[in-house]
Every structure is written in C-alpha cells, then in structure tokens.
Design a protein around this nucleic acid. Structure first.
Lengths: 129, 129
DNA sequence: CTTGACCTTCCCCCGTACTGGAAGGTCCAG
DNA sequence: CTGGACCTTCCAGTACGGGGGAAGGTCAAG
C-alpha cells in the first residue's frame, strides 16, 4: 500500500502521513526497491487510533506517548485512564470558562445593543467593551 | 510612566507591551530624551480595554480592528455589536463541541476503568481509545 | 565609582498541526 | 517515448501570543 492509498483509505493526506512519521506517531515505513513507502494493513488501524485520539481531544504528543507505551509493551491501562480523566477535567474547566465568558460577552452585547446606534458617537463606543 | 511601571500597573510584561505596540494595538509610545518609552495614564485604560477584549475571547486582531475604528472615529457601534454577536455564536458552538467531546471521552474512560487494569494486557489496551 | 535595576533594539525561539512548493525520481497508459 | 500521476527529500511558511537572551545605554543608591 503506497502512501497515497493509505491517505485515501484513512481520510488524510500524504503530507500528514509523512508528518506523523517524522513526529514519531507512525514507525518508519518499509520501503520498496525504489524508495516508496510501503504500508501494511495495520497502518489503517493505527491511523484510526490516532484519529479517535484526536477526536477525543488528545494532542499528538499524548497519542504518541500512548502508542509508544503500547508498542514497547508496558502496561498502558492506567496511563490511558489517567489521560482520559485529565481530559475530562480539562473539558469541564473549559466549559466553565466558556460559561463565564458567555455571560460577559452577553452583557456587553446587551449594553451595546440597548445603546441605540444613532445615539452612539464614536468616542463613546468602546466603553461597551 | 515607564514601560515597567505600565506593565506592573496592568498586570502584563514589558515584552508584551512592546509586542502590542509592534502589533498595532498600542500607538507608538512617546519617548524620553534618552529613548525610554513614556506612557500617559490613558495607556492603562487602553490596556484594560485590551484585557477585557481578550477576556471576552476576542483575538488581538479583532481588538486592533475595534481600536483602529475607534481611533479613526468611524462609527463602530454596529461593528462592536456584530463582533460580540459572533462571539456568542462561536462560544455556543464551542460549548456544544465540548459536550460531544466530553461524552466521547467519558465513554472511553468508563470502558477503560471497567476493564480491570490487572486483566488488561498491553496489546488490548488501546482498543479503549 | 561601582553595582544593580532598569531601559533599548535585535533576532530567534516556543508549541500546535500541519501545508506549500521546489527539484528530482518512478511508473504506466497511449 | 512522452505525458501525467505518483513518489522522494528538504526548506519554509501558516496563525497565535508572546518568551529568551544578547549587546549595549541609563539612572539612582551607596
């Protein structure tokens, strides 16, 4: 399987695949006699793994860590759980931040809206922010 | 007011202030006879403005646009309202995304947690992700 | 007079996740 | 045998919001 086929099969690009290899997310691919990358079917699964990790909000560095742990055979179960638990905390914190931000923005928006545009000279406008 | 004092007064750094000036968020500061930046009290207000904008989730580019509009005297009222309305939409979308992400992560976390670490051989672990 | 804290410009660097493009080699159809 | 589609490496750039640190000038205290 050449890099273009793998890219097609996994919904990504050849650029991204080479980038992943350079970043240590994919092992160095086998090469054909002329130097083309030659992937096995397992590469699709690994890329799906990466895609799911990304969808779960993990960074490439975190995914790489998990893959490294798996590849080297060290017990990753707790590691994965811990990572996911941290993600849950981070998401909750982010949602809380966004709630506060939304309240602030909504208030500013309300003030700006109620200010009646016609009576809003330029030099006063930015008090609304 | 020197740059260090202004940084202290506004809770930022001299690096950031010079960066803001270079980015067009602050007008070129007046200089003392030896070339030190010399700020008036209005700089504090402008930086508070920037800080509030940042807290409301605006990018520096958006803040710069608003400031430019204000500085040049063109009617910004609708502009500010529109920007804030867009922010509200963006925040709502982001919260929705985070809800979906949280559900995904929580599910993975539950699976990984119920998997009993001891019975979790390395080659199976990453199915949890 | 020296020491230390401040100031200046300058350029490069951080992390994140890629993307663009140049220069060159390979493969297959017509 | 030629053209186009594919592959290779490498360099550089995107956007964001700054941070690090060098080399040098300035100022106030002791």
């Amino acid at each position: 399987m050449r890099i273009g086929e793998l890219a097609e099969a996994t919904g990504t690009t050849t650029k991204t695949l080479r980038f992943y290899e350079a970043s240590g997310l994919l092992p160095p691919a086998a090469r054909t006699s002329v130097g083309y990358r030659d992937y096995g079917e397992d590469a699709v699964g690994r890329l799906d793994f990466i895609r799911r990790g990304r969808a779960a909000g993990l960074t490439l560095a975190q995914i790489r860590d998990i893959l490294t742990v798996r590849d080297t055979g060290h017990a990753p179960c707790g590691h994965v759980r811990q990572l996911l638990a941290q993600r849950l905390d981070a998401i909750d914190a982010q949602v809380a931040d966004l709630h506060a931000l939304r309240a602030t923005v909504a208030q500013l928006h309300g003030v700006a809206t109620n200010a009646k545009p016609d009576t809003c000279p330029p030099e006063q406008v930015c008090r609304y922010l």
